[in-house]
Nucleic acid binder design. Structure first.
Length: 483
RNA sequence: AUCCAGGUAGCCAAGUGGUAAGGCGAUGGUCUGCAAAACCAUUCAUCAUGAGUUCGAUUCUCAUCCUGGAUUCCA
């Protein structure tokens, strides 16, 4: 089996071959920190987190770098609005970003470089481009000369004629400083009351695209394996990154370019500028959806496809996740009633067929939707046995076989970042079984005396503590933890 | 307008040159004093439209229509 992925650069799926055997370097375009993250950001970073987890599970040693853009017009605007400073605004939203992503079980990057911490690298890169004659200074600004690069447009599939068609009628205030309207800024002269850095071109700050080129080089080198980000960054951002980096180094910037599809609302892209966004913390804090259900929602479609955000979809995702969650939490029940030893290191007890199906789904450009079907197959078997155990006190399957299914499910779900809260599980299991049995006995007496009000009250009380009672034929009552 | 991606059951969503995974929902059933939950079963697809290639296409090619993204900050 071999991993194949869709490369925006070549417009087709191709075999994944890292530059260095068993090692993968990933650079992911991060957020501009001037506001809280919305579902669109969640989708993107859940997708890349899953890619990273899968590659590691596949045996690669992954280095994952993601930047924060902390110098930008919108941050400055926000700072003025909040009567704050650029730094304070950045810090606030970086902290918020990390909080949100932690809740979605998105693992922290190996490093989070920031534009403002990479000024030297940025200036050095611009100087190199100037020396090579592909960049020029103009009234305190520095521009990249797009036409100096013969393969400009190779990532987005654009030709200059296409660009001209789209640019017609648009007049940029910077145009007077540019030699060509398609040239873009590497360095911008400082405006009054804005933060700036000293440079040989005068006081100023970096343009948007250059920071990523500099940070990739600084942290990962001239060439990396995977560069990823939202599909809306393909042009001009990633196109320009390629232009700058490759002009400077003469080497290919990234072998694979991966782009995730957008989250739509009512058929239109969710975006801050349109104002049709719902923040992650709003969804999570208001109990509209659980973190893992949000993750499940995102994983329900292949990462390149657009997905629609609707109330209905949130409900469906929640219900779907609960089905998997039930099966995942069966481990605790298995330990309590079937004597399973959960030491978290059961590499041998795995369902090979399921592992293979899962791997072949994920090997095909990270097809999480298809991979989830494998999880549901496993969950189905587990939940059926769980039902037997709850209702009859026994299971049909062999305990070891069942353990194998559960163990496989647990591992594969973790590869997708779908994990249950073990602490809550443990807390629930710590309730005293004797006390529960005692209450069940009281309820049985009440039922025998036709005092159904009392019987229902006992059942209700237990329910509030997470204990569900199931009456059996013949008068016995089994109980289990709510999952 | 140009470039890119896509149009699969009530909804979401995989996939394949030989008539199509999975999830959600719905319906019925098991169980029960009544429930709830869970489990079991079942239901619905001329795979956007037209043409072409082929023994055969939903899957390949072309055209058309529709949707989204990009061309301006954007995950």
């Amino acid at each position: 089996m071999s991993l194949t992925l869709y490369n925006t650069l070549t417009r087709q799926k191709s075999l994944f071959t890292p530059l260095e055997e068993n090692k993968v370097s990933i650079y992911c375009c991060g957020v501009t920190v001037y506001d809280y993250c919305h579902l669109g950001h969640a989708r993107s970073y859940i997708a890349w987190d899953t890619v990273r987890r899968y590659l590691e599970w596949r045996g690669y040693h992954v280095t994952y770098i993601q930047n924060f853009t902390d110098i930008d017009d919108k941050i400055l605007k926000r700072a003025r609005e909040e009567k704050s400073t650029m730094d304070a605004v950045s810090e606030k939203y970086i902290a918020a970003y990390l909080e949100d992503m932690d809740r979605l079980n998105i693992r922290r990057a190996d490093d989070y470089p920031r534009a403002t911490h990479t000024i030297d690298g940025i200036k050095r890169l611009i100087h190199e481009l100037e020396t090579k004659g592909v960049a020029y200074a103009s009234q305190g600004d520095v521009y990249y000369s797009v036409r100096s690069k013969s393969d400009y447009g190779k990532l987005s599939g654009r030709k200059f004629e296409d660009l001209e068609a789209g640019a017609s009628g648009r007049v940029d205030e910077e145009d007077s400083k540019k030699r060509d309207p398609f040239d873009f800024a590497l360095w911008k002269a400082a405006k009054a009351d804005e933060p700036f850095w000293e440079s040989s071109w005068g006081k100023g700050r970096p343009g948007w695209h250059i920071e990523c080129s500099a940070m990739v080089r600084d942290r990962l080198g001239d060439s990396i394996d995977i560069h990823c980000g939202g599909g809306d960054l393909t042009f001009p951002h990633h196109e320009n990154e390629i232009a700058q980096s490759e002009a400077a180094t003469g080497k290919q910037l990234a072998t694979y370019w991966l782009h995730n599809g957008m989250v739509n609302v009512g058929g239109v892209k969710m975006s801050k500028s349109l104002g049709n966004f719902t923040t992650i913390r709003d969804l999570l804090d208001k109990g509209k959806i659980e973190p893992m259900a949000m993750r499940f929602f995102v994983l329900g479609a292949q990462y390149r496809k657009p997905i629609d955000f609707t109330e209905e979809a949130m409900t469906a995702a929640t219900n779907g996740w609960h089905t998997l969650q039930d099966a995942l939490q069966f481990g605790a029940i298995g330990a309590a009633k079937l004597g399973w030893a959960l030491n978290g290191n059961d590499q041998d007890a795995l369902d090979r067929e399921a592992i293979e199906s899962f791997t072949s789904a994920m090997d095909d450009d990270f097809n999480t939707a298809s991979a989830l079907a494998v999880l549901f197959e496993l969950a189905k078997g587990i939940n059926r046995e769980a039902n037997q155990l709850r209702h009859q006190g026994t299971i049909d399957a062999d305990s070891q076989t069942l353990f194998k299914s559960w163990n496989t499910l647990k591992q594969l779900a973790a590869v997708l970042g779908l994990e249950t809260d073990d602490k809550a599980e443990a807390a629930a299991l710590s309730l005293n079984p004797e006390a529960i049995e005692d209450l069940i006995a009281q309820r049985s007496s009440a039922k025998a005396a036709k005092d159904f009000a009392k019987a229902d009250q006992i059942r209700k009380d237990l329910k509030e503590q997470g204990i569900v009672l199931v009456d059996q034929p013949g008068g016995t009552t089994l109980w289990h933890h709510e999952s």
